[in-house]
Design a binder for these strands. Sequence first.
DNA 1: ATTGCAAATGAGAACGATTATCATTCGTAT
DNA 2: ATACGAATGATAATCGTTCTCATTTGCAAT
Lengths: 144, 144
Amino acid sequence: MHQPEHLKNAGLKSTLPRLKVLELLENAQDRHLTAEDIYRKLHEAGEEIGLATVYRALTQFEAAGLVTRHNFEGGQAVFELERGPHHDHIVCVHCGRVDEFYDKIIEERQRAIAKKLGFKLHEHTMTLYGECSGRDCPGRKNKG
Amino acid sequence: MHQPEHLKNAGLKSTLPRLKVLELLENAQDRHLTAEDIYRKLHEAGEEIGLATVYRALTQFEAAGLVTRHNFEGGQAVFELERGPHHDHIVCVHCGRVDEFYDKIIEERQRAIAKKLGFKLHEHTMTLYGECSGRDCPGRKNKG
DNA sequence: ATTGCAAATGAGAACGATTATCATTCGTAT
DNA sequence: ATACGAATGATAATCGTTCTCATTTGCAAT
């Protein structure tokens, strides 16, 4: 149980709702969750927590660098626990499955482009959209 | 004046509001406009048009491939007339200025990554965020 | 352990962007 | 010129998210 220190180190008071959200992010199979996903899962687990509190916690975690917010297509932001090095995403347009990748060459090119255009690069978003080949993806042509 | 054919070719009925929106997209200095930008500019020009109609027109233009919708940070989607080859964007976090770029190497890498991960690539979004060096950018350190 | 106070919480109102509803008007094929 | 279905505009509704404010909590100092 080392989560309270995570929050303390991030300059956040260690409260029960925040610990619950953090714990869920750490243990959920799906690494990419909306605020409502988190709210729903916690309620299913019998935890009392308000939706506004979930949003507040996520916003603070983001500011503290514990969590990253992604604005994929489709309205709702998804949140992901920051576990290690930067990566980008590829999303299936049929089933919503999210894979992650990192490409050193692209990162280098991005830095070079920003420099050439006179920008001091802060960050970037890159998301690829396509059809995945998952066996249970509804977009899969049933050809075996 | 060739806009009516543009609409016809896209399978859309040629109506006055749609022509106004299309004309504005073609002639505005800023290539990246929100729906409200368009609504406001048309009203300033004395045109009667409803905000809902602007949204409808833009959504149809997008479906027809005439326009691209970008979900940059900050809530409002921005729309851009499709004028030619694909490109990506770099946005100033201070003044909101948008520059465009295209990088063949990145595009190749994206295709290779999607293939390796078993995705049939449809499209992608890539947006860099940073500080621009514009003389009138409020983020500019006044060092000269 | 108890107290006190600022910070955090929860319920619901408020908000901004976008979409849906529906009576009226327009575009166009006849 | 006519008629019909599609498009429009005003406004209500919706959705995701943030704000408000009365109550509760974490925690530092006793």
